[in-house]
Design a protein around this nucleic acid. Structure first.
Length: 884
RNA sequence: GCCGGAGUGGCGGAAUUGGCAGACGCAGCGGAUUCAAAAUCCGCCGAGGUAACCCCUCGUGUGAGUUCGAGUCUCACCUCCGGCACCA
């Protein structure tokens, strides 16, 4: 008998809202817990089934902790700046604020229908002026500390989006969002000096309870130790600094490569080579990352005509320019050691440059020509006084030798780049900076002007927030961004002089860098947050969110936090103690094929099994074919499939189907809409099912049939209550099961093993169902431990048991450890490691007792076949193994 | 290519320090209920052999190893997923 989730869920959501059940309040003497969900971007598509996964997990965790007496802060908000709303504004003229407000209302309603225990009074929205003010305030702190600066740097200009993208937002030469082509182009950009914090960002990871994300951040920061070495340029007054991690191979440097965009490249190029080098540099500058990687592995480059002097042996080595050397890393120039670096090796082969081995490694054999670089460590050779030293020693000794002669120094480099912080966009936080300018009239009326970008002036903190102007037209295109068109906003007079505001805005990452701090005190008008609020809740004890933010968001937020730490604004060096990533939820659909046969106009479709082995892929076009005929994929949703004897069949056609699990996509018909699930099966069923699917961190496929199974379980729990509880004391077996389940569910929630917690409760439910009437103590315990998972149903049942609401305020049940352990256990008896029998034994039975009991088992006797055990391995409570 | 993670029934998954592989759920099969169906309830449910019951053999991606005993530990390999990708 199914309960009516519509009535129950609406009723209790109303109750919680009315009673502010989940308002976060600190009580003296109680432990605090700050649990944070990554706040969503409120897109026009609404919630998808992936959102409730992480949110439910933290909801269960916090509800349980509340019941155990913790003061809990569990807030929610909106990362509401972003391109889609602006794109919508460009297309329709609707103000992004309008779109954003509508989307947020939709999201909030959806989240409330899921019954999450958020403190909604702390909701934050990154686009509120009251929030933007403090985002800008943090920017000013960065600016004052010299961590925000402008640079004319080659950036990733995306013509289609009319904006600049960070390196991280460019994937294979295309924009991460939209997949538009990206080209390199110099532009004035604000940047944040995250590299100044590289060392601390890497080092402080050590103390954090984070998953493999730590390693990703370490890799992203990419610390490397090496040396900078000075090469004199022959016949010129110039010097060239190179960076190397292998100073021990200096004797093997047979040429030098300088990046095409290095400031010295054209300067040291000889007249004869100038035209060719110039052309190469121009082509390289225009190349997008896509072209560079697609044209790929072939090394290109041009001889500059100049030579450098290798400082260790005074040899003249040619200087090339090549785009495999990046201007933005190290010194923008390298010494090439083809014998011991694969990239240099490939270049040397392509250009016929000498390859000189200077490290003897296990792979090298005398006189053999190298077929690839020997990059592993070994023993120095051909390196004069340094011969015989190990690679480690040689690095040290040669570096010391260089330092003593003023030819080089030890140097640490990072792969991490400074953060390009400007966006040429409307829907973002205005950067609170203005510039002096020259003008012969009123620039708001079209007078000519020149802006002096070299003298940025910070807005006063009391002038914040700097709000966005209203625009008629949101189209980008001007490299200065759409704000450049708002003349009366952009230009203003102060003490008779004209000034121009910065027209770039901040990237979407800005607001999400510090939102966890604003939740502490979201309505504070005077300060970013009060010290009391900070001390009450920080740091974040558990942070839950998608692994796609493992590097960028989490690195940027840690960076800002450390800056605020240095400013004395926050007291902890790290914001997020424990981090968990929920896994993605995939969709499932069943595939078959159709072969398109017959000519034009009279095509027929022949269905083919989704498991067919006879399909071939055309080598040229990549199209699927079946016996020469073109083939198309067709999809059937799980609800329509006929299952028969372990096979899946098409509902009408006689073909077998293949189950395919992949990312949800409209084209596959495998998208699950949470609103529909809630309406049809209830929020409690959705919540419990998403937890039951499997381990939280794992990628898992959505199976509607599995959801139905969970709903049936909730119905059985509800049915138990309908039967009426018995006030007779529970039998021992039932009490044991109850206490064990309380223990297991509690431990599982603490460890976020929510899938096994659900199955433990199912097992207990099955047992209680087998009794004529569920004993009150047993059923009440079940309702309590169920309440974090299925809070609406639990409230209803709790009230039905005669208790005053809310079950969320009830105490988490305790268990009796003695009842969780058996005194008599069933022990498996092995003979030669194979289970042959089972005996009932006291948990702490002695070895002789155990052996005796084992030898009394007829099946064991049979297996022994008259042989006497030579050795007995007995592990009390676990196993007894007889060796013959 | 490099770095991480994972491979267990028809499907999702369980097995907490090496100790009864497959908990729990889905699907499937059989039965009860029903005029019938849905819903619900009960039973069976890794493969093979034998078969009234019992019992035997094999079985956690592949191959080796350690151990009385391996899904779990070690080595090599294969496949899939995620991240990075000329960072000197």
């Amino acid at each position: 008998m199914a309960y009516d989730h519509r009535v129950i869920e609406a009723r209790w959501q109303g109750y919680w809202e009315q009673h502010e059940t989940f308002r976060a309040v600190r009580h003296p003497g109680r432990p605090k817990l700050y649990v944070l969900d990554m706040f969503p971007y409120p897109s026009g598509h609404g919630l998808h089934v992936g959102h409730p996964e992480g949110y439910t997990a933290t909801d269960i965790f916090t509800r349980k902790k509340r019941m155990q007496g913790y003061d809990v802060l569990h807030p929610m908000g909106w990362d509401a700046f972003g391109l889609p709303a602006e794109q919508h504004a460009i297309n329709t003229g609707t103000h992004p604020r309008e779109t954003t407000r509508k989307n947020i209302d939709h999201f909030r309603a959806q989240l409330k229908r899921l019954g999450f225990a958020y403190d909604w009074s702390r909701e934050v929205n990154t686009t509120d002026t009251g929030y933007v003010r403090w985002t800008q305030w943090i920017f000013l702190q960065l600016f004052k500390r010299g961590l925000a600066f402008q640079g004319e740097v080659p950036v990733n200009w995306c013509p289609a989006l009319g904006t600049v993208l960070a390196n991280e937002e460019v994937i294979d030469g295309r924009s991460e969002r939209g997949g538009h082509p990206v080209v390199r182009q110099p532009l004035r950009q604000w940047q944040l000096k995250i590299t100044a914090y590289a060392e601390r960002l890497a080092a402080d990871l050590a103390g954090l309870d984070w998953p493999e994300t730590k390693q990703k951040q370490v890799d992203w920061i990419g610390r490397s130790e090496g040396a900078e070495v000075t090469f004199r340029v022959a016949d010129q007054e110039a010097e060239l600094r190179v960076y190397t991690t292998r100073p021990d191979t200096l004797f093997g440097a047979t040429y030098v490569v300088i990046a095409p965009d290095h400031p010295l490249t054209l300067e040291l190029t000889t007249e004869a080579q100038r035209a060719e080098v110039t052309r190469y540099a121009e082509v390289a500058a225009r190349k997008s990352d896509l072209e560079r990687t697609a044209l790929g592995k072939e090394k290109t480059g041009v001889f500059t005509g100049a030579y450098a002097i290798n400082p260790v042996n005074d040899r003249r080595v040619p200087i090339y320019t090549a785009d495999y050397v990046l201007g933005s890393y190290g010194t923008g120039a390298i010494m090439a050691v083809p014998a011991h670096d694969q990239r240099d090796f490939e270049f040397a082969q392509a250009f016929g440059l000498p390859i000189v081995q200077v490290v003897d490694t296990e792979r090298s054999s005398a006189g053999q020509e190298l077929t690839e670089a020997l990059s592993e460590p070994g023993v120095a050779m051909g390196s004069g006084a340094f011969d015989g030293l190990s690679t480690e020693q040689a690095k040290k000794e040669i570096t010391r030798w260089l330092v003593e002669r003023g030819l080089g120094e030890a140097k640490v480099n990072y792969r991490l780049r400074d953060w390009v912080f400007s966006r040429q966009r409307y829907w973002g936080e205005p950067i609170p900076i203005y510039f002096p300018m020259e003008t012969d009239g009123d620039p708001t009326q079209g007078a000519a002007y020149t802006i002096d970008y070299s003298r940025p002036i910070a807005l006063g903190e009391e002038e914040l927030p700097l709000t966005l102007p209203e625009l008629e037209d949101y189209h980008p295109g001007d490299p200065q961004g759409p704000l450049a068109k708002a003349l009366t906003w952009r230009f203003f007079q102060r003490e008779g002089r004209w000034y121009a505001r910065e027209t770039n805005t901040m990237p979407q990452w800005a607001g999400s860098c510090w939102y966890y701090l604003r939740y502490l005190d979201p309505n504070n008008q005077e300060e970013i947050f009060s010290q009391e609020a900070y001390d009450a809740w920080m740091p974040v004890d558990l942070y839950m969110g998608g692994a796609e933010h493992a590097v960028l968001h989490l690195l940027y937020a840690r960076f800002w936090h450390k800056v605020l730490f240095d400013c004395g604004v926050v007291k902890h060096p790290e914001p997020f103690q424990k981090l968990v990533h929920q896994g993605m939820i995939l969709g499932q659909a069943y595939r078959y094929y159709v072969a398109l046969e017959g000519g034009e106009g009279e095509e027929t479709e022949r269905p083919i099994s989704g498991l067919s082995q006879e399909l071939a892929r055309d080598a040229e076009s990549g199209e699927l074919t079946f016996q020469g005929a073109p083939v198309e994929e067709r999809w059937v949703s799980p609800a329509e499939v006929r299952a028969q004897g372990g096979k899946y069949l098409h509902p009408t056609l006689d073909v077998e189907l293949m189950l395919v699990t992949e990312k949800m996509a409209k084209s596959r018909g495998n998208v699950v809409n949470p609103d529909e699930v809630v309406a049809e099966h209830g929020a409690d069923a959705l919540r419990a099912y998403e937890m039951f699917m499997g381990p939280l961190e794992q990628v898992k496929p959505w199976q509607t049939s599995g959801l139905l199974g969970v709903r049936r379980w909730l119905d059985r729990v509800h049915q138990l209550a309908q039967r009426g509880v018995s006030d007779e004391p529970a039998d021992l077996e039932t009490r044991r099961r109850v206490h064990r389940t309380i223990k297991k569910v509690g431990e599982d929630i603490d460890a976020l093993r929510l899938n096994t917690a659900v199955s433990a409760m199912m097992t207990l439910t099955n047992h209680l169902t087998s009794l004529p009437q569920p004993p009150r103590e047993a059923f009440e315990a079940l309702v309590l431990i169920l309440s974090p998972f299925a809070p609406h149903l639990a409230e209803e049942l709790w009230e039905g048991l005669g208790h005053a609401p809310s079950v969320a305020d009830a105490a988490w049940p305790s268990f009796d450890p003695a009842l969780c352990e058996d005194d008599v256990v069933e022990l498996a008896v092995q003979v030669l490691g194979k289970v042959r029998g089972r005996v009932q034994l006291a948990k702490d039975a002695s070895e002789s007792e155990a052996t005796q009991a084992a030898l009394a088992d007829p099946a064991v006797v049979r297996s022994l076949a008259g042989r006497a055990p030579r050795q007995v391995i007995y592990r009390p409570g676990k196993i007894i193994n007889l060796i013959v």
